[in-house]
Nucleic acid binder design. Structure first.
Length: 404
RNA sequence: GGGGAGAUGGCAGAGUGGUCUAAUGCACCAGACUGUAAAUCUGGCGGCGAAAGCCUUCGGUGGUUCAAAUCCAUCUCUCCCCA
């Protein structure tokens, strides 16, 4: 009597929403061994706590880690507290800033708090790679470094690009893949997960494990989800992300702003809907009879439900409709009291922090983007009477209830 | 150790003494339109000011000049070639 589901079911489950499995045969063998011995597989995911704001792009791989938990395997989250001090160069065209130990501690905590929205903390094992990497001495490091060559390091796409484009690569960045590989050796990992940009690092893990007489880990990569702009990968620095801790209205709205041709990818990688739903969406997208907007609404509800609840998803939708379709004002909005019955429009906008400068406020008024209780403000010197509260609207989505 | 090139607005990237708040593209903001915060089109995109106008910005510092992103010195950082 096995504690795991049938192997073909496990494989189907794991295959959904991943980019590549190296290799499927090895994974099947691992599952078979687990079946025989009853020992769960060790599934490793390393995380870099340098930027702890998790978005639904990070969630792709985190959910995969969760999937392994769901079928009874041992998921391990490796907090890269030590490697964060190095700065992972993956997918970057410049050196990452190195963090202080205090920052790393703080960020790690935030990371786990946020990951809790996706992972099952009851069975999750959390370790810090500083525990073993921090114990290595210089001799150990040199020995580790001798396992790899410069030429092989330069094979890595981003190193090669940076080298060719004459952007700096620091020596310490070469140590990153090796450090990460050490984690796999330390944990004797059966599987390591990562984004496609991590592929090189993950493969180094296999090599190093073999050098240490371990069976090489299976490498599973997940796609890097495009951001809401549809062009660049989702990232906080491009401001094209949907944060997993964002409020429902924000998640809903940002989802509605993605380009149409991203709808199917988001369904596949940002939700857990099953393959029949996926097929249905695919059909509707191409049949020309369905308004893509309606599919996007469905998608937005799915994603809000995932991180909040079905109920809040419906609320978010209702509010979205009210603001953008009916051009009405939202239920809840920020409030601001002026301290006087009559104030200039410029000072309200600036003092409340709704706009960053008077210059900016002036521009917006000139462009006809500012209304008070639905009345367009035409003159930048206008005084507003707020003895009874008014609703200030700037652009399409900035609202403020202003009172004296 | 020797030689050469470079650092410009959120990013990329022009500009080599005044016409430079600094071309252009991307990003961003707004308006129109719409099926949405999509697409497309139009406008905007340092600060203060009602306006006139004033102030601040081109790696840091100091200098030359009536005038510097542009010239000189120096510092910091980066890249390339040779050894």
């Amino acid at each position: 009597m096995s504690i795991f589901p049938p192997i073909n079911e496990q494989m189907d489950f794991i295959r959904r929403g991943v980019e590549e499995i190296i290799s499927e045969d090895e994974l099947v063998k691992k599952f078979e061994t687990a079946e025989k011995t009853g020992d769960p597989l060790v599934i490793k995911l390393g995380c870099d706590p340098s930027r702890p704001d998790l978005h639904i792009g990070h969630a792709v791989v985190l959910r995969k880690l969760r999937h392994f938990q769901d079928i009874g395997h041992q998921s391990v989250l490796v907090i890269g507290d030590f490697t964060a001090l190095i700065g992972d160069p993956s997918g970057r065209n410049k050196t990452r800033p190195q963090l202080t130990p205090e920052q790393v501690d703080e960020f790690s905590e935030t990371y786990v708090q946020q990951a809790e929205h996706i992972l099952d903390l009851k069975t999750l094992k959390i370790v810090r790679n500083g525990d073993w990497l921090g114990a290595m001495n210089f001799h150990d490091v040199i020995k580790l470094a001798s396992h790899y060559t410069v030429a092989r390091m330069l094979e890595r796409d981003d190193f090669e690009k940076r080298y060719k484009s004459e952007t700096p690569i620091s020596i310490h960045e070469f140590l990153y893949p090796l450090a990460q590989a050490m984690d796999s050796v330390e944990l004797n990992a059966d599987v390591e997960l990562g984004g496609t940009d991590q592929k090189f690092n993950l493969l180094v893990g296999r090599d190093l494990q073999k050098d240490h007489g371990q069976g090489p880990q299976v490498v599973i990569t997940t796609p890097l989800l495009e951001g809401t702009d549809g062009i660049q990968k989702m990232s906080k620095s491009y401001d094209n992300y949907i944060g997993i801790t964002d409020p429902p209205s924000e998640i809903y709205g940002r989802t509605m702003s993605i380009p149409d041709d991203l709808i199917i990818r988001y369904f596949e990688f940002a939700t857990d809907v099953d393959s029949t739903v996926l097929k249905d969406v695919q059909t509707k997208l191409s049949d020309g009879k369905t308004n893509p907007r309606d599919l996007k609404r469905q998608l937005a509800r799915e994603i809000v439900s995932l991180y909040h609840s079905d109920e809040l998803a419906l609320e978010a939708e209702a509010e979205f409709d009210r603001i953008f379709i009916e051009s009405d004002v939202p239920d809840k909005m920020e409030e601001w009291s002026t301290g006087a019955a009559e104030v200039t429009i410029l000072s309200i906008m600036c003092d409340s922090g709704l706009v960053p400068s008077k210059r900016e406020a002036r521009r917006l008024i000139d462009q006809g983007a500012v209304t008070v209780d639905g009345e367009k403000v035409l003159d930048i010197t206008e005084n507003i009477n707020v003895s009874s509260p008014v609703v200030l609207k700037v652009g399409k989505r900035r609202f403020l209830r202003v009172s004296a």
